[in-house]
Design a protein around this nucleic acid. Sequence first.
DNA 1: ACCTGAACACCGTTCAAGT
DNA 2: ACCTGAACACCGTTCAAGT
Lengths: 181, 181
Amino acid sequence: MRRVAQALGVEAMSLYHHVEDKAGLLDGVFELVLGKLPPAPRRTTSWQRAVKERAESFRAVLLAHPRLVPLFATRPAVTVESLRHVEHSLELLKAAGLSARASLDAFQVVVAYVVGHAISTVRDPELETSGPDYAQLDAADFPRVTELVALLPTHDLDAEFQFGLELLISGLERRLETSRR
Amino acid sequence: MRRVAQALGVEAMSLYHHVEDKAGLLDGVFELVLGKLPPAPRRTTSWQRAVKERAESFRAVLLAHPRLVPLFATRPAVTVESLRHVEHSLELLKAAGLSARASLDAFQVVVAYVVGHAISTVRDPELETSGPDYAQLDAADFPRVTELVALLPTHDLDAEFQFGLELLISGLERRLETSRR
DNA sequence: ACCTGAACACCGTTCAAGT
DNA sequence: ACCTGAACACCGTTCAAGT
């Protein structure tokens, strides 16, 4: 509060005439950022592509505000603004053939994945140093980890995200196929 | 630091003779909790069951310390202790037929999902009230959300977690099947 | 080697007083 | 209606001084 006030050239206490408290201010930030989500497109493609597009948009918004990712991780998305997106996503899943319950599950699961992965993406790389030196590891004891360390420099977190997203969608696909029989 | 010291019946500054700083203390907590992960079992079942079991164990440890979940969300797991689990998981995936790169992707993706979902599980339910009253929503404007609200009271977050986990595993399965051809 | 007290530079928030 | 200053109850951390 004190720093926000300072940035506005005003005293900290003045803010309390515009927001309830710190949580209220964060609510505002939350809704503001969520408002950057591109509007739900009219249904023109497959549900697979639509789910993918929604998840990617969400990720893009999160990565555009790395400092806010922990906020999204802690705060539930229940503003009116965000409910419009929820509605669209649930509609999408139901139209694909999922039950109401399964749509809820699928939606929550994808959101959890996007947020969880965003966290690992924006993680302060400086923190990595606090761990043990990878170089000091006995390569014989940790063959797979050693292999992994060699891969890290060229590792693409966006590709990794895509990979997991496609796993989820492909899992849903298979589930729909078997339930239709 | 001040409260930890107080709980130990000592002055805050005394802690600095045992840990570097607050981050160092959190590192210790982190490793301690991670140590509660059941040891990697010998390979006796399918990789599907093994991946599922590892993810469920990780979730159980997280949920046993709800206040620490945000810590796990922010801090990378690079203690020697945790690397043993990483090694085991990567070995598991490679033995299932994934390349080193795909194993890394799969591992990270599952961890992101477990952490992301744990966050939504331990989210302070008191926060939900800060959103708009679901009751005040126009049911005609939000048919799917209205449906969802009716489902919430009987919604099982553990079942939801299982659902997503199985999607990921089933997605991996399909990927392996098609790549083998 | 380990602990301590005072001090510094921060927080969010209450409350009474100003315009 | 909006802003302010002083004050309260907190933080993590530095530094010099104690045993």
